[in-house]
Nucleic acid binder design. Structure first.
Lengths: 215, 215
DNA sequence: ATTGTTTGTTAAATATTATACCAAGTTGTC
DNA sequence: GACAACTTGGTATAATATTTAACAAACAAT
């Protein structure tokens, strides 16, 4: 079942999840792969194949029960669980993430923030305290943290990565523009805003019509 | 030359650019594909093949001149130009982007912000004025804007997309969680933070060691 | 001159991704 | 309850993309 699912499939799951959520909101109870195909601009065949990586959720002659499939994908994505997040780098950008209500709504709860700036250490952001970065190691040792959100300048990232490597966190959501190295048991998900903007810049200047939904 | 470059190659360019910038900072004047390979964790063969999509920048027996290659990639990415940006949705997240100094440093200049919130219309963020969203269409008609940064809630996106479709902007940097539809002459680059977090969630729960640098 | 380096480029190998297909199970209708 | 219309699951196939290997040719260095 969970055997070598391609990364391309995994990256499509959140989009399926979003569309199914929309259908749920519209009280649509069932949907066929063909109908979903029309809405999403993906072939019905691919939709069925994607889903069948994880199990058989549909029924011949009927299609898929929207709510059931929604919950299946939710579970596949691990969104039926709750996660403790710690954020490192509580500047402008970091604070914006903490303030964003949708993460908490989905079970991603910030439990602590860390920074080196004395001006903000001791303050709270959305009710979450900002600690001195020097406390990071002991905090991670004493508290359960699943995911570290890294929003520091690139220069600070390697040092932090070393601390994280020795902790028992499970994942890093890395917004810093640095290739961080940690052991394989820690999963790193990179978000590279400047890279994304540069890619857009490239495509604007070389628009040989390779427009894709992936964008 | 600029014929059907694969998206995978394009997405590696910013990373090359970053590494070359680091080398420049360290006053390293030349580098071979082999050496770069060791630093970046990419095969030398791939590096050479990637670069040769755009021209012949190296020299046998010598390698690559760092500064020259850096500038070539800069030019390939279109970073030797200046772009006018308008941001729609000047909330927390939008303001953070406007305040981020690195974009301006790279030639991406915000010229106007738009929002529907009366409380912030008329104010300035980093010296850039916030206009009423109703003025968007006329502003785009009267001013040169290359890129629109879309940081609104998903619900607002389709309506805005319609306005943008009729404008002469070149690209959209879309942070809204919506699949926006515009004519092919407008390039859309999506940044999906929630999708990224969901992908991380999935990988944390199914870590079958498919750790990749792409992350 | 000669040796060692290193590129550019073609070719081969691999991997990935997407599509087509159809038997078999359901639904809904008459 | 039989029949027609749907629609899935799964396999097979096709298409595409990506990566690696290999090596002649060009250059550097001494």
């Amino acid at each position: 079942m969970s055997d070598k699912i391609s990364i391309a499939v995994i990256k499509r799951l959140p989009r399926y999840y979003r569309y199914l959520g929309d259908l749920l909101d519209k009280d649509i109870a069932r949907i066929s792969s063909k109908e979903l195909s029309d809405r999403m601009g993906i072939t019905a065949s691919q939709i069925r194949q994607d889903l069948n990586n994880f199990g058989s959720f549909g029924q011949q002659g009927y299609g898929y029960n929207v709510e059931l499939l929604y919950n299946e994908i939710k579970s596949i994505l691990g969104l039926d669980k709750v996660y403790n997040l710690a954020l490192i780098g509580a500047g402008n950008f970091g604070q914006t993430l903490v303030n964003y209500p949708n993460f908490a709504k989905r079970g991603f709860n910030f439990v602590a923030l860390f920074d080196t700036n004395p001006a903000i250490i001791g303050t709270k952001v959305s009710g979450v305290e900002v600690f001195a970065a020097t406390n990071l190691e002991s905090f991670l040792a004493a508290n359960h943290v699943d995911i570290v959100v890294l929003t520091t300048p690139a220069s600070a990232a390697p040092g932090i990565a070393k601390t994280l490597a020795a902790s028992n966190i499970k994942g890093i959501w890395n917004f810093s523009n640095s290739d961080i190295k940690v052991p394989a048991h820690i999963t790193v998900e990179n978000v590279r805003l400047t890279d994304s903007l540069m890619t857009l810049s490239y495509r604007i200047n070389h628009d040989e019509i390779l427009q894709r939904v992936g964008g």
